[in-house]
Nucleic acid binder design. Structure first.
Lengths: 193, 193, 193, 193
DNA sequence: TATGAATGAGAATTCATTCAT
DNA sequence: GATGAATGAATTCTCATTCAT
């Protein structure tokens, strides 16, 4: 019985769970696998988390907070819409590359999606951020867009596609710069357009 | 019980399985549910399919063939790269909207993804199609792209993102035209570019 | 795999479950024990019953129906209140002696008592029967009772006590006739009373 | 943590355990719940009691002693058998009403009933008390009974029924006086009997 | 072909008990 | 004395798969 502090043990379990969930998906990851990966007994899992859902939600909540903060900090002092788009896309792609496990955030549990409310709010917030940037660009006359929200959704979906490609289809991954280039060009206002 | 020819029964099972898989996901769809939806006994499922994986793979194979044919037919006589891009994106979005179940194609069984080889080949083929179109556009001087394959991957990922949005986040869906507009503008060669 | 008809198998499981529940109580009887006693696998239990509660409730429902019918038939043509009391007590005691397992009917699951509604209705019906008999006796001038319902409850509780004694304290069991004697004497109207 | 003397802590745990056992039953009461209710850690429970059974037995022993003393004191100077019966029944009913938890005394752990020997002795003693009273009444010519022990068992079972009704079926409860009335009338010797 | 009863392995979860601190 | 993290065995329940009919 290797005694640790409660918090230490909890972090340890979370780290293990992230790996296992990411490797096998929510459904195929069993509590036994997670326990094994964390080097603890199954019972210990339930000492720190009410159940499998709770463990999963704790993890996703961390990511959401993490990404929110990272994004906010990065966009904090950026006024130029072109730079803002560049930063948003680059951060998203980089973060996804570094945290392949983040796919879990997108995780669907078909019937009832686990923590759906929380996630949708997060997605909504990110799309709003993009919408604001595009809108600003339009106002400033550097972007062209009939419908900034629609444009934001499209950009958002490239990034969502990237997340899944990370997991199921690495050949489909692209460089952030290439994406920025295409998008900025697509948004660009032109005289003879 | 209603005697049917073997083939008829098989079609019937596949139709039911598509629905159930699409509604609940591979893991949460049980053979019992599929049997019930098809109005046959569990044993009958195994008469036509070796096992659950086999049933799933049969379905995905059908889709791949279906989509391949649909796409090929649509692009058959189109020479203009701009029209080709427009058609490819529109077909993909429309098909996804009509066949929400197609998400299954992206289906990940994390550890070992079921039928991965087959799917990856399909994805590769679609990206190649896009690459060819972009390449042609560049050659003809209407598109601008440093790396057509990279550009193709980006477009491919918007569409992949759309598929997942269909399932987990309907608010994120966008119109095909808006996407075409952004992409074509992004690809457009410009004098002062 | 010993194939039986569905109904045959179900009866077999019920018989085993009655024994196991009676011997160990609801909580201490495990599905594994019941399966073993029935000579089937655990999975088979769930083929016939939705869950443990369902199995338990099926059993209690049978008893309730059984006892109701038995009692109704016995009291059908009896007009004399003294005979009716005698029959009611005798039947109850005899049935309990023969079906020691019937204790399950009383079964408490503390927080939420399983099938409480159903049982309470059954108990209520039996008390009502007793109340009617006593009331009749009073009306006919052979019984004496300030409050027939209260009297009925007391008699009802002797019988309930008997059921528990069957299980936990056989030394406390008594003969039906002795009980009838005491009760009838207690109910008897007297001139100098 | 609040340092207490060992004995004080023990009393505290017992009080909490009584509540929890009474609310949830032996099986459904967990050591964690008891610890929580007592405001101590799980480990502390095992400092004072060898295990769950030990804790339970300690409690039942207390009750047995408590009830024995209460009953003895009440019957101490009562000579009249009629009064004695009245007192015994009234005390039993009242005590049960006030200590709903006392149901635990009847507690069955089916297979091997916890502390069975101890309890049976207690029940035996109480029945003996009743038997003595009835016997005395018969000797003095105020009661009529072929078999005082049998009569005692019947009275004992009304009271046992009452205890269970307290828990599972409050509608079945009755007033002590009504019971005394029926029993005394039932015991009464009559001229024309 | 078709059925559906039966299986057994494995899933999530609970809990009495132990023991390092 | 007191704590509470850790354990492991047991519990309920699910499900892909098999096979006698």
């Amino acid at each position: 019985m290797n005694k640790r502090s409660g918090e230490e043990s909890k972090r340890n379990i979370i780290a293990a769970a992230i790996q296992v969930f990411a490797d096998y998906g929510y459904d195929n990851a069993s509590m036994r696998m997670i326990a094994q990966a964390a080097g603890v007994s199954v019972g210990t899992l339930y000492l720190h988390f009410k159940n499998k859902d709770d463990l999963y939600l704790t993890i996703t909540k961390e990511w959401i907070d993490d990404l929110n903060e990272l994004t906010n900090r990065a966009l904090d002092r950026i006024d130029d819409p072109r730079t803002a788009i560049t930063v948003f896309i680059t951060i998203s792609i980089d973060y996804t590359r570094e945290h392949r496990e983040m796919i879990l955030l997108q995780g669907r549990k078909f019937g009832r999606c686990l923590g759906l409310e929380q996630k949708q709010q997060f997605f909504r917030k990110r799309r709003q951020l993009l919408t604001d940037i595009v809108q600003r660009g339009v106002t400033e006359g550097v972007f062209r867009s009939d419908d900034p929200a629609e444009t934001a959704r499209i950009i958002f979906n490239v990034l969502r596609g990237f997340i899944f490609s990370m997991l199921i289809d690495e050949e489909a991954l692209f460089r952030a710069e290439a994406c920025v280039d295409l998008v900025l060009n697509g948004l660009r206002r032109r005289n003879n357009g």
